[in-house]
Simulated assay, not measured.
Amino acid sequence: MELTRFLAFLAVALPVVYGAPTQTATNLGPKVLEAMKRDLGLESDQAYARVARELSAVEIIEQIKTAAGNSFAGAWVTENGAITNVAITDAAMAGQVTAAGATPVIVSNSLSKLEEAKLALDNTNIDQPTTLSTGEEAATGIAAYYVDVEANKLVIEALAGSTDHAAALAAQVGLTESEFEVKTVDALNTPFLQGGDAYYIARSARCSVGFSVTTGFVSAGHCGTAGSSVSTTLTGTAIGTFSASVFPGSADMSYIRTTSGTNQGSINGYNSADQDVAGSTAAAVGAAICRSGSTTGVHCGTVRSLGATVTYAEGRVTGLTQTNVCAEPGDSGGSFYSGAQAQGVTSGGSGDCTAGGITYFQPVNEILSTYGLTLVT
């Protein structure tokens, strides 16, 4: 791919919406409308309405979270974004939640309590012990764990041979049976690294660009390490290098500093008009979200959980967002977005875009704040 084409590719098909007063901010790209109809069953007018409602929901949730303090137990949207649910442990707060425009849900566990248990698990050795749950033939491993705000529990995903181990880990960090759930999964997660038609790392592996920043772009950390060169083709001239990268550990994020002129605000619309990014307001659990990647294009789904910890072969990664959007190798690093709002860069997961799957992304705001970057909008 020649350099001029790559300039338009730097944010990979991120459309804009949310009903802001300009034409740009009220336009959903045709590829995204097509994907939202295919993956979410939404007609064009329904798609516009949903993303607008969900942006308003974020503001309501933040207001209640501040007022509720330790009583806050998480929030999520339902009914295509029409209902904002806010969980609280103090029933006396219900009136305030209703007055703010949300539906109160009274639960037992505060969000801070479950997050503290998850943090304790992050700091625990979770390697599978010698004694297995269902015999020596059963596959073992802890795939992921996260706070499910709707269930008001910590969920641990484990292979069949590690379900007992998962329950023991939950007990080890102080959770009772009513405070956690073990879910059996078929396979561990993998980073989506190979394939794709985006950018090359050290003239070898390929990944997808996430979002343009004023001095380059951001992507996934597993795509490359500091000092690795980046080019637009396998044999092309390098246009930049990985300035910083984290994977595994506290994030799956990278910052690629590029040569002058490669940080354009316009993005590749996948055979549609180039479009812009309006901001990076984080979406709520249950919100519609789409992903653009160089292997599979645009696919949509919903946010399932925030702050998940995922186990890859290389180690655990904390602080990822779980979605039911599909992805495949080569989509790594690509844009996750909700309407016009940048959400994060594709990390990894399981499944594919034929059978469906689960995909995690690294929140973009953490990348921007960590490296002191400014999103191009």
Rank of each mutant, 00 (worst) to 15 (best):
G265E: 08
G334H: 08
M253A: 14
G344N: 04
T323K: 11
A284M: 00
G301W: 07
T323V: 10
G351W: 01
G357V: 03
S347H: 09
Y371L: 06
G286T: 07
Y360M: 06
S338G: 13
S305C: 02
C353W: 05
A288M: 06
Y312A: 06
G279P: 08
Y360R: 09
L306S: 14
A340M: 00
S350M: 10
T318N: 09
V277S: 14
G333E: 05
T309E: 04
T281C: 08
Q322K: 15
L320Q: 06
A355T: 14
I267A: 15
G349P: 03
G349R: 11
Y255D: 11
S272I: 00
A340F: 01
A340G: 15
P363C: 10
A283F: 02
Y255A: 13
G301Y: 02
T374M: 01
Q343Y: 04
M253I: 07
G297A: 00
T346K: 07
H299R: 15
Y360E: 07
S272F: 03
G372W: 04
A273D: 12
T354F: 06
F361K: 08
N263K: 03
S335P: 06
S350Y: 04
V364K: 08
T259S: 15
A340D: 10
N271Q: 11
Y371P: 04
G269N: 08
Q341Y: 02
G265L: 02
T295L: 07
V325R: 14
Q343V: 02
A283T: 02
N365T: 07
V298K: 13
A342P: 05
T374G: 10
I256Q: 03
E366C: 08
G249H: 03
T346R: 10
S350Q: 13
G315V: 00
V277M: 12
Q362E: 15
F336E: 12
P329Y: 06
